[in-house]
Design a protein around this nucleic acid. Sequence first.
DNA 1: GCTGGCACGTA
DNA 2: CGTACGTGCCAGCA
Length: 911
Amino acid sequence: MSASDITDVPGTTDPEERRILLIDGHAMAFRAFFALPADGFSDGRGQATNAVYGFTRMIFNVVQSERPTHVVVAFDLPGGTFRDRIYDQYKAGRDETPQEFKGQIGLIQQVLDALGVAWHTVPDYEADDIIATLATRNAAEGIEVSIVSSDRDAIQLVGERVTLLQPVKGVTEMKRMTPAAVEEKYGIPPERYPDLAALVGEQADNLPGVPGVGPKTAAKWIVQYGDLPGILAHAEEIKGKAGQSLRDHVEDVERNRRMNAAVTDLDLPPLEGCVLGRGDAAAVSAVFDELAFGPTIRKDLPAVLLDASTAEDAAAEAARELPPISRPGSEELPALLEGELAGGAALVVEGRWELGEGDAHQLALATEESIAVIDLAGLDDTAERALAAWLADAGIPKSAHDTKLANHQLAGRGLEVAGWATDLAIAEFLCRPDQRPVDVAALALRHLQEDLQVTTAAAQQELDLGAGDEDAAARGAEQLGRTADAVRRLAELLRAELEERGATSLHDDLELPLSQVIRVMEATGIATEDAVLAELDAEHETRQAEVAESAFSHLDGDRINLGSPKQLQEVLYERLGLPKGRRTKTGYSTNAETLADLLDKTQHPFLVDLLAHRDVTKMRQIIDTLRRFIAADSRIHTTFHQNIAATGRLSSNNPNLQNIPARTEEGRRIRSAFRRSDGYVSLMTADYSQIEMRIMAHLSEDEGLIEAFNSGEDLHRFVASRVFSVEPEEVDGAMRSKTKAVSYGLAYGLSAFGLSRQLRISQGEATALRDGYFERFGGVRDYLRESVEKARATGYTETILGRRRYLPDLTSDNRQRRENAERVALNSPIQGSAADIIKLAMLRVDALLREHGLTSRVLLQVHDELVLDVAEGEEQRLRELVAEGMGSAYTLSVPLEVGIGVGEDWLAAAH
DNA sequence: GCTGGCACGTA
DNA sequence: CGTACGTGCCAGCA
């Protein structure tokens, strides 16, 4: 190849305008692999993608900063090269390629193909040689060359027109090596670097140099004698140990120099095939989908990589697809609602919802034919009534990204919505339960390959009414309208996917109706008495100060930060010299379990105070957090999420009301702050008794376990009597608690190690305990074994309602990942089925309360428990209806038992 | 100001 | 080296 090969490329005829970027593919991929966690990047099917991700990011960055017109990525080929024939120990002693790295080179090449970036390999040669050939030739033709490589052999290529970019940290930060920079760092010009390397040797390539000679000595010699031949010619004159060492290792040095010489005469394809701007947007998107890449990296894809025609095609298509956007006022709206919108629409609400109060400003409605963006504040009464009627019409199907949130926001304007057909967040979750929730823009990137460009803060601000600024308002409306259009198409797409995955009924009949029940619970909130929390806080404040003082007194009055694990480590393990226990990533554990062990062993009084301080600090933390969330109506309005917990449980935040202390007497006092509402007489708690073990009995069909639940005997006592072959009356506390630990441990995928640690018994004892259990409850053992095998075969686990959890790691070669997936596979059907059941129960209880006209209402759900406000005169009927609704939510092969308690507050309502 | 690690609350 | 979550603090980073 010569310069004439590229003179035909349009727009790049002048060598001075051409810039070529050369990348060492293997070296950079390997660096990316170690810069990013392998277990943090996966395609969802067990293939690590961290190197692919890092490499792609690197390419994007370098293309942006170097603005090349041509790019070539060079790769090594598996197997040897000519260098191995010169020296059979070349690159020997390297660690084996990590398992997770394998396969990622192929994926990188797929990405490059989609990006239209050329990549080359040459049999019998290394990537270095390809780079050396291209750099030398093109620089000679007057073309600017940038090389990206972490390999030091590339230093020799640096020259007037050749710059080396060396990764500094990871793969995104680069240092520019110019001839001056090389001189400064090594004290010699770039072309002499191989001489220096030959003398010093190269550890990574297993090329030993002259012992006792480092870069400084080598550079000194090179300066003095000109080059390596000069040095060797004068070897006899060099004094001292280094001189003798050189004379003893002349052969090594000569070999090294032959090995590290760049090859610059390879036969390579013409450069015109390497011109930038031939990427295919759709192909890139498809590859990124396969790799499960998120939205961030997609946004950073430099446009210069893409073929202008595909970008134009995409833009043209997007423009054609978008129906006209109108901004109907009060005049036009009623007719629109009865006409084009009568068949339903996709909704996007611009508004807010916090601390139990919602508000909405703009509403975008999209159909296949048209999009309407409505300024809610500007409507007259007639138009507003028409809109209210349309929204409340259950016969008009609607979809939104988050239907519950849309309801909350619109409720702030007195608007109720019925007729929800599709909730994107729920549908997406049912299809991909292990993925983090994402906004509409990210869903559009993921499924429509479109960038809505509405996620930036600036765009959001424009949407805020456009306050008097007509242009901003128009831009806001345009973005809202586009988003609604995307919601409409996403809804269609996701409904099809729900169908494929057998999750349509879960969406339509369970989660979507449930979201409306939860919406009312959130809007209602739970009455919370600040005075109770304030007093608890004051008590704990005093106590906190006391124990802190006492703790410091054991440290010669040294007031360390008791909340700093780092400072505690120093005090406990250095200063007080206590025996070190369990290790953490950053040092030695100071958690409660470790501290309690330490106290047992040493009786050190500081530990007593420290543990007390931990308790009281935690209490104050919880109390403070709760107080911050008490809204103007003296109630706490938590948010329940249906798309967070991969097993199908709800989660609760702002604040989390599913982790209010219950285990200790002191902690439980916090519960007394949650009280019956004004106009109600008490709170009721209703919980399932041992629901997970009942599900285990049902799924395993183990006769013994089923009998246990039908016997009327205490479950753990019954199971223990079987395991230990004694009469139920003879089961003592230790036997019962051991059995209980095994029972629950099984549902979590326990190991003998974990069991022994929890019960503080030997591993042998733990194994014997588990074996004894399985001997009597063989059905459980068979079920557990079969359920993992089935999941391995199908790729997912399933709950009683068919809720799936995909577990690609079940077939991973990585033992840690595989065993983790196996535990998840054991637990998910059990925890998930329990979640299914209480969700069914919530729907049923809600329906029963309506049906019977009760005013009492459900306030909270805590996984196996419901908390309700009891209205005057309804307690007895409520007990019956809740027991019925929860008890008959789903028919298992054992009864579902429900415990109920009633009291003034959540503490008193315990039972 | 953000992030990772730790600790700890619940089922 | 049993599952599923959310929150707050510290420390190190930019």
